[in-house]
Design a protein around this nucleic acid. Structure first.
Lengths: 149, 149
DNA sequence: CATCTTTGTCAAATAAGTTGACAAACATTT
DNA sequence: AAATGTTTGTCAACTTATTTGACAAAGATG
């Protein structure tokens, strides 16, 4: 039988693999940056894209976030190159965060009251206890620390 | 001055707002489902899309996941309608999960060794303690439970 | 066997994406 | 001040993507 963990992992794969490649117009609409700007920023090496078989630019979700972060600094008064520098120094956190959550969110159990994700070890509590993310019916959501069997 | 929390929230906004609307071809490539199938599934009411000003279908990321989940069940031997039924019964968890993480991931502090996200209260530990997600330099990543000042 | 479901493919039209060039606004240097 | 560099808009000509509607075919269902 297919368990909730199996189903979850399939969706996780879809998210993990950077299978999603975005068209330039969709990046532009989502970030409020023009396609002309995106192409220029890429030419300058500030952002990256791959080319599809037919020669169209495709962007990962992380590149979309980079575009959005640069734009946000420009709106705050930075020059383009200044904005890029700031973003390059700080954007790594988002990759780290994503990687960590991908690693830890891997095990989910269906229980009578809903779903429970086992997020593994936590510093600062008994060693035989794990952190759980609990999604209960009725939109009751919480983190829990308890023994794992 | 702009704090790490300020910067984080701007990126979070970009992610939260469903600003990202995907073209049908990008959904097709990411999921391995043909554009013909996607249009048919939409006609049957199994998935949803909005229309851009110029009349092109646009899909949210959740709809992409829905397409991927349906496809995954079809590959497991289900009929289309059977796959859809299963997905409709289970996909809510992902929306719940996203919503919960969006709510809890809102506060981040820069500390000497890296970054620390305050995820708030945890059941099963002292009431004056919070759960933290810690991203340290050198890729040391962990959950921590400790007092919050 | 007849029917419904599901998907592929084709055609004609519109929209989106590509590169290259010219221009304009603005900042930086000499 | 004049010259140069940065950044973005816009236009043109061309290629690729998307849209709808129709026909066809394979498979499931009754």
């Amino acid at each position: 039988m297919e368990t909730p963990t199996d189903r979850f992992r399939k969706v996780k794969n879809l998210i993990d693999q950077d299978a999603l490649l975005l068209s330039i117009g969709d990046v532009a609409t989502a970030t409020g940056v023009s396609t002309r700007q995106i192409r220029y920023w890429e030419k300058k090496g500030y952002i990256n894209s791959t080319l599809s078989e037919s020669g169209q630019r495709k962007f990962t979700y992380f590149e979309l976030l980079t575009v959005g972060m640069i734009q946000s600094r420009i709106e705050a008064g930075y020059t383009l190159s200044g904005a890029v520098k700031e973003v390059q120094e700080t954007s790594g956190v988002f990759k780290e965060l994503r990687k960590f959550l991908q690693e830890r969110m891997d095990q989910v159990n269906e229980i009578s009251t809903g779903y429970e994700f086992d997020l593994g070890e936590v510093e600062g509590v008994d060693e035989n206890k794990h952190l759980f993310l609990s999604l209960e019916k009725g939109h009751k959501r919480s983190f829990k620390v308890k023994k794992c069997k």
